[in-house]
């Protein structure tokens, strides 16, 4: 139960709250964090409504002279943010869902089936949680690039979306198996026994009986996966070309260009296009996001 923990009784009893310096410092510190986040985005929004000459000539604090939404259209079409957006949606949803299906299968067996290697397999997957993907990618890339060089027909398969999606799926496996294992372990065993008596195959028991019971856990886990893939940059930088980038990669190239062309205003419009969907999802599904995040981060 969130926030069930009691209120400090001392505060209740006091009629007139005194302003205590400690409390003031606390609020100041919290506001510093909150304001910097809110102000930064408000500022980005303001700039995204200005024209480039206006941005360069007026104070960065000045309000836009009029609400000009053309930058958004410009970023969406001309700067190709629209196509990056579609790429990101595809990559994140495919990566997250396949990873969860693959992990759920393994997590179910590790959690529910009694056989000799359970504990060993569970720990084996868990170790991967500590291995930074960034380090494994470099040798993997050389391996794939080498194959592509030697066999040009295979090169489309070795570099680009194929291996990237494979990496996206695999990168979630340690986290997902760990979290989903926890969800499966918490289920009662009667259902499974009944299914076995009725002669259901292991896969059918998993798919039709056990998986639906952990739906809420799957939703939280999917959210965490989706958000982290939506924001993923390093792998995309290595495997994708500028023309078919994901949003973070496209934004990065756009920011580099802005340094020379001073096209800051449509860059900021693009930043908003990238960020707003995430913020909306977060605002709607805050509790599930917290749940997914805290479930995965090793228990104390």
């Amino acid at each position: 139960m969130p926030f069930k923990a009691g209120e400090p009784p001392a505060i209740r009893r006091r009629r007139l709250p005194r302003i205590r310096p400690g409390r003031l410092v606390v609020y100041l510190l919290l506001s510093l964090f909150a304001l910097s986040a809110i102000a930064a985005f408000a500022w980005v929004f303001m700039i995204s409504l200005k024209t480039t000459p206006e941005f360069l000539s007026t104070s960065p604090w000045a309000l836009p002279q009029k609400l000009r939404f053309a930058n958004f259209a410009l970023a969406w079409k001309k700067a190709r943010i629209g196509s990056y957006f579609v790429n990101s949606i595809m990559a994140s949803s495919v990566g997250a869902s396949v990873s969860i299906i693959v992990s759920a299968l393994a997590a179910y067996v590790i959690a529910r089936v009694r056989f000799r290697l359970n504990a060993l397999l569970g720990n084996f997957f868990l170790v991967g949680y500590m291995i930074p993907l960034m380090l494994t990618v470099i040798p993997l890339y050389f391996l794939l690039a080498g194959i592509a060089n030697a066999n040009p027909p295979l090169s489309a398969l070795m570099i680009g979306w194929g291996p990237l999606l494979g990496l996206y799926v695999a990168s979630g496996v340690p986290f997902n198996t760990f979290v989903l294992r926890g969800f499966f372990e918490s289920l009662p065993s009667e259902m499974e026994e009944a299914a076995a008596i009725d002669g259901a195959t292991p896969f059918r028991t998993f798919w039709q009986i056990m998986l639906p019971l952990v739906t809420s856990g799957i939703v939280s886990t999917f959210l965490v996966n989706f958000l982290s893939l939506w924001n993923e940059f390093f792998l995309a930088l290595i495997f994708l070309k500028k023309e078919n980038a994901t949003l973070p990669l496209g934004l990065f190239y756009m920011a580099q260009r802005a340094e020379y062309t001073a096209q800051w205003t449509d860059l900021f419009a693009a930043v908003l296009i990238t960020t707003v969907p995430v913020l909306v999802v977060f605002a709607l599904l805050q509790k599930q996001v917290y749940r997914g995040m805290t479930q995965g981060a090793l228990k104390g």
Partner: peptide, 19 residues
Amino acid sequence: MILPAFILYMLVLAFPIIL
């Protein structure tokens, strides 16, 4: 049921570290 996760894990995480 375990195999897909296991293979992916080996290919993308365990093997490259050794490599």
